[in-house]
Write a protein that binds this DNA or RNA. Structure first.
Lengths: 163, 163
DNA sequence: TATTGAATATACAGAAATGAACTATATACT
DNA sequence: AGTATATAGTTCATTTCTGTATATTCAATA
């Protein structure tokens, strides 16, 4: 449970030296960063016994939630927040392990269709209980109302990106 | 401005197949992940012309906010959310570039003191205008009240980690 | 004061991620 | 049709990161 107070202190010093530095945006960005690191590390730890890491978990879950358990690499890159070159590597490995298949698309021959295999589905449903526990733990400090509020604010912030 | 609707749809499918999967915690984690990726990529893009990347920017800013512009590697690892082995590498590079110095601590000889050089401070104050612009852009959709609410909720969530 | 255990930082090898270049296919335009 | 432009995916070289082992110093205590 990393303490955020030192970050606040550093930010005060920074602003004293450089008054134009915007406190609130900087706090938000640093909080997001810290939260992500925790999420990432904890997910890695949970997945390790299954021979997977956090990005691989993500890929699998995106497919699990897709119609027909299938997606293209580019959709997957977008969904999982990975660069496309990285999706190639990740899906190659998952396919070597037998959890997904790779097939050329019929209608557009540039496209590739990645599909979960039954073994992939089985694997997912094996590790999901651990993930469910993790997710509950990671949000245990927030009431349902607070979770909903947080969701709304994060979406709003995210929507402002990329301009 | 990556659209979040497909994520929601995937989550609905997932829950239909696996009802125990907690929607709200999963949404929050995915939002944090997407936000972080955007923050990371955009910061990398802004820093590139200065010959730096996002983690290096972070290291420099942590030092800039520290008393005496100095910290130990372990403090820095905690502050910047980097693994300590990575801090060694990052600070070695920054020191080779002349932006920080590395010195053995007087009182505890296990410790190392990393300090910003004048060149480091100058560099920071050169790129800060671009960062300030970036930070404002990344939070432009949120009112000041919303930013404060978001800060509170993120802190609360973060405080629940690590148990 | 020895000894044991904890803390700090680094080294190193292997794994993961990135950016840029490239191939192949599809779409738009004239 | 023919040419230019855009899109999908991969490859490759390089950079970045991680986990683990190790060296050194400090702290506690018997």
């Amino acid at each position: 449970m990393s303490d955020f107070a030192p970050t606040e202190a550093r930010l005060r010093n920074t602003i004293q030296k450089y008054p134009a530095f915007p406190r609130e945006p900087a706090v938000l960005v640093r909080l997001v960063k810290h939260l992500y690191k925790e999420v990432h590390d904890e997910a890695n730890a949970v997945m390790r016994p299954y021979g997977l890491n956090h990005p691989e978990y993500n890929i699998l879950m995106m497919l699990y939630g897709a119609p027909g358990n299938a997606m293209n690499p580019s959709q997957l890159a977008d969904a999982a927040g990975e660069k496309s070159a990285n999706v190639t590597r990740l899906t190659t490995r998952l396919s070597e392990m037998g959890f997904i298949t790779r097939a050329a698309s019929e209608d557009d021959r540039r496209k590739v269709e990645l599909t979960l295999t039954p073994a992939g589905v089985e694997l997912i449903e094996t590790f999901l209980p651990d993930i469910v526990t993790l997710l509950h733990r990671q949000t245990r400090n927030l009431s349902m109302l607070e979770q909903a509020q947080l969701e709304g604010l994060l979406k709003k912030m995210l929507a402002g990106f990329g301009g």
